[in-house]
């Protein structure tokens, strides 16, 4: 570590590509540990301002009210200001007030430890330091099923608040090492994502493949970690996370979601085939399917 050689020189292109897509090169821990740590930290969602969300939702309501399909959507025009206060808007206003109450309710719940703090990530220091609440991720049943369109229910609890990072989970009844405790939640995310036919975030995959000693070992690693974390007892790699799951479904570590995984009985996967226009948009830069182009041009020039 004290040598002043430039490790960057050792970063091979395929290692770089692997890192960028969320895999930690298995055998290269020493060389790349710092970089992996940096990328993991960078990949954590940042806490967000609640008022921003309310403002955007409000704008959304106004736009919706002003630009209903029947009213001829005005291209180019920015219908941010609704011409009159329609019933719809009044309803929206009521909804906004309700949402505000929900927000504060959740905040209170979080303060009292009933929920993970919505604006605080477990271990990483953040711009807006939250009160010293210990994140008590209580019982599995306490939170809504991961599959549901959680946040859509109007509760901000499900939002990003980042990171069950390292020191975050005091309530885990895990008897294993500290690292395994930390990675328990990550493993659950990982297997959950796999079951839903998509990948866990880059951050998760990087951390897990590092902990497991390689991408290929993540499955068995997580099976073991999740098994050890089962509250009932530590016997065997038994899935604890969800009622309907087996954690060993193919997690499609790096590539695209494997079709096998999408067959998992998750409540939210229904749209796996719903990729209407797109799937392609991501794959092909063809101008015909370029929503970015058509959508951003007008107001930017």
């Amino acid at each position: 570590m004290n040598e002043s050689r430039e490790r960057g020189a050792l970063l091979a292109a395929d290692d770089a590509e692997r890192l960028l897509s969320g895999q930690a090169p298995g055998g290269a821990d020493d060389e790349l540990a710092g970089l992996v740590r940096l990328l993991v930290a960078a990949g954590e969602p940042l806490p967000c301002r609640a008022e921003d969300e309310l403002a955007v939702l409000d704008a959304f309501r106004q736009v919706s009210a002003a630009g209903r399909p029947g009213d001829a959507r005005r291209r180019g025009a920015a219908p941010l200001l609704a011409p009159q206060r329609s019933r719809r808007q009044v309803k929206a206003l009521v909804g906004g007030v309700a949402a505000a109450f929900t927000l504060s309710g959740v905040a209170i719940a979080a303060q009292t430890g009933a929920l993970p703090h919505p604006f605080h990530s477990g271990g990483t220091p953040h711009r807006r330091p939250a009160p010293p609440v210990t994140v008590s991720d209580t019982a599995p049943g306490a939170n809504r099923p991961a599959g549901t369109a959680g946040p859509a229910a109007g509760s901000p609890a499900g939002r990003n608040p980042a990171a069950p990072t390292h020191p975050a989970h005091p309530t885990h009844p895990v008897t294993g090492s500290h690292a395994d405790t930390d990675n328990h939640g990550l493993c659950e995310s990982y297997t959950q994502a796999a079951k839903q036919g998509h990948q866990a975030s880059v951050s998760i995959r990087l951390r897990l493949s590092q902990a497991a000693g390689g991408e290929a070992k993540v499955d068995s690693y997580c099976a073991a970690v999740i098994g050890a974390g089962t509250p009932t007892n530590g016997a065997g790699p038994k899935p604890k996370s969800t009622p309907t799951s087996t954690p060993t479904t193919t997690p499609s570590p790096s590539g695209s979601p494997s079709p096998a995984a999408t067959t998992a009985p998750t409540p939210t996967a229904p749209t796996a085939t719903h990729h209407t226009a797109a799937a392609h948009a991501s794959a092909s830069p063809s101008p015909s399917t370029s929503p970015a182009a058509s959508s951003t041009g007008p107001h930017r020039h």
Partner: peptide
């Protein structure tokens, strides 16, 4: 607890 983590991550 797992779910919250899943949701967040």
């Amino acid at each position: 607890m797992g779910r919250a983590v899943v949701r967040r991550h």
